[in-house]
């Protein structure tokens, strides 16, 4: 078996992008102290919303916008239930996933087998002509670059800005943040909607780029791996990228092995990216139980201001 290393790395970046979108959104949500297990549901809802609009308007760009809005709207259901009605976050998140998958299947029924224009790669002038590096880094579609930009922006926001400090404070101790006069519920709702929009973008990347036609269950568990990556990346954007690329890289490799008819059961190959990513991230985060790797202290706890 022979794989061009440049093609491999480029494909790895493409395969990792949906996970990156979903995971970076969830990272912000969890940093604010909310555990939203509905990532898979928001992703697939974004995927179908994007697909429908791209099909109706012929504009991939409008499809991408619709996906972000669709994901954010679905997350607003979660936000209302958990932030105002104080429902259990775990149960509500699981229900959101089930609801999202069902909703996408319903909305997608008329579109089964329909094709749309996919997102086209752009070739960055000059840079994409660099041998090898050009193929790997500079000839992707714009959404992939946008995903990397969001990871950087989230890192910058969390570590450098006052807004990020407030968000981390809310996730650390909502009682203290409330006592200092910060609006805990507002911060959390905004974070949840950001997470929903990012998950929607991740879904659109699958439905508008990876698979050119609508298929039911297009996300196939990517939302769950995104959740796992957030935890094992110790809520750090940089480590999250490593996890996502590992997942994308092994995903590409195993497809290649399937095509080559390597004598390993297909089921094992299909499962391999999930298993390998989790093992790698566990090793990465093991033995470092220091405070900088700890979960946000208020993660998953409901907040109710007594006033």
């Amino acid at each position: 078996m022979n794989i061009d290393i440049a093609v491999f790395l480029a494909s790895m970046m493409v395969a990792a992008t949906p996970v990156i979108f979903a995971a970076i959104g969830e990272l912000v949500v969890e940093k604010s102290g909310v555990l939203n297990l509905g990532v898979e549901g928001m992703m697939i809802t974004g995927a179908i919303c994007g697909f429908i609009l791209a099909n109706a308007t012929g504009s991939v760009f409008l499809g991408v916008v619709a996906a972000a809005i669709g994901g954010a709207l679905l997350s607003l259901i979660f936000a209302t239930l958990t932030q105002f009605l104080l429902s259990n976050q775990v149960a509500t998140g699981l229900a959101l996933t089930l609801f999202g998958i069902g909703l996408a299947a319903l909305l997608g029924k008329p579109y089964e087998g329909v094709r749309v224009d996919v997102i086209q790669p752009i070739s960055i002038p000059v840079l994409s002509d660099i041998p090898v590096l050009g193929t790997i880094l500079f000839s992707h579609d714009p959404l992939l670059y946008f995903g990397l930009f969001i990871v950087f922006a989230v890192w910058w926001f969390l570590t450098k800005t006052r807004g990020g400090l407030i968000l981390r404070a809310v996730g650390e101790s909502h009682d203290a943040a409330h006592a200092l006069g910060y609006n805990v519920v507002r911060v959390r709702i905004l974070a949840i909607m950001f997470g929903g929009a990012c998950a929607g973008l991740g879904g659109a990347y699958l439905s508008l780029l990876r698979v050119p036609q609508w298929t039911e269950n297009v996300t196939a568990g990517v939302g769950w791996i995104a959740l796992a990556i957030v935890v094992f990346a110790s809520w750090k954007p940089g480590r999250l990228l490593i996890g996502a690329y590992l997942f994308g890289g092994i995903g590409f490799l195993q497809l290649h092995l399937q095509v080559e008819n390597v004598p390993i059961p297909v089921e094992v190959l299909n499962a391999s990216p999930y298993i390998a990513t989790i093992i790698a991230l566990v090793i990465l985060s093991a033995g470092k139980s220091g405070r900088s790797n700890a979960a946000p202290a208020a993660l998953g706890q409901p907040f109710h201001a007594s006033r």
């Binding site: 981390r168 404070a169 650390e172 101790s173 009682d175 203290a176 200092l180 405070r291 202290a297």
Partner: peptide
């Protein structure tokens, strides 16, 4: 009580 953030 309640007004400091341990991890910050």
């Amino acid at each position: 009580h309640f007004s400091l953030f341990d991890a910050l």
